[in-house]
Amino acid sequence: MSDQAVLLLRKQLKELSRNPIEGFSAGLADDSNVFEWAVTIMGPPDTMYEGGFFVAAMSFPQDYPNKPPTVKFVSEMWHPNVYPDGKVCISILHNPGDDPMGYEQANERWSPVQTVETIMLSIISMLSSPNDESPANIDAAKQFREDHAGFRKRVASCVRKSQEM
């Protein structure tokens, strides 16, 4: 199974290097391991994250594309849909099938048709419009709802730190 994953990941990497997508860059974290990628996500224009250069690690399982990768911000990130440890929580990165908690429909979760490009575009979309209804970071969601000025200030600090990295 991992031979198929290696071929698919190499193909996606080659496609992204030939045709870069605006808003992020991606490459191997280590040339000897196609399952570990380093990505840089540019803070989307007209959002609180604008101007940021957020670094994340993308780890693919051996049975990719049947199972989703994990994406974890290395840069400091303050967002309702990012766990305090940096791990991104969006529907398409959740294992395929029915949600045991009943929050998501199966068609919102991981599918083998997803690619690095669709994942990154979903993360950019997440930065543009946080979902505080089903938060991974409860403190960030609470601040987003109850102290928007404080939330913006904390995000601005993350943006500044990302520019210094």
Rank of each mutant, 00 (worst) to 15 (best):
N33P: 03
G52L: 07
G102K: 09
S157I: 11
G102Y: 10
F53V: 02
N137G: 03
V159M: 00
I119T: 00
E104C: 05
V39Q: 02
A106N: 12
Q163A: 06
P112Y: 09
R10E: 12
K142T: 05
V113W: 03
A29L: 14
A56D: 01
S111K: 14
C158E: 08
L13P: 02
Y103K: 09
M165S: 15
R152E: 13
F54G: 05
K72D: 01
L28W: 06
V159K: 04
N131W: 07
P20N: 11
P80V: 00
Y49S: 05
P130W: 03
P44I: 02
R154A: 05
R154F: 06
D98F: 05
D63Y: 05
R109H: 08
A29G: 13
V113L: 09
P61C: 09
G23T: 12
R18E: 15
I119F: 02
M77K: 09
R160D: 06
A106S: 15
F144C: 07
G86T: 00
P68M: 07
S122R: 08
K72F: 04
F35P: 10
C89F: 05
G43Q: 07
L13Y: 12
Q62N: 11
K87H: 04
V74D: 03
W37H: 08
A38G: 11
P68C: 07
A26V: 15
F54D: 06
D85S: 11
P112L: 08
K161G: 00
D30K: 14
I119H: 01
T47I: 04
N66F: 11
H79E: 02
V116S: 01
V39P: 00
Y49L: 06
L9A: 08
T115E: 03
S91Q: 06
K72W: 03
G150I: 01
E133H: 10
S91V: 03
V71Q: 05
V116R: 02
L93G: 04
E117T: 14
E15H: 12
D99S: 03
S91T: 10
R160K: 11
M101H: 13
T115A: 08
P20S: 11
K161I: 06
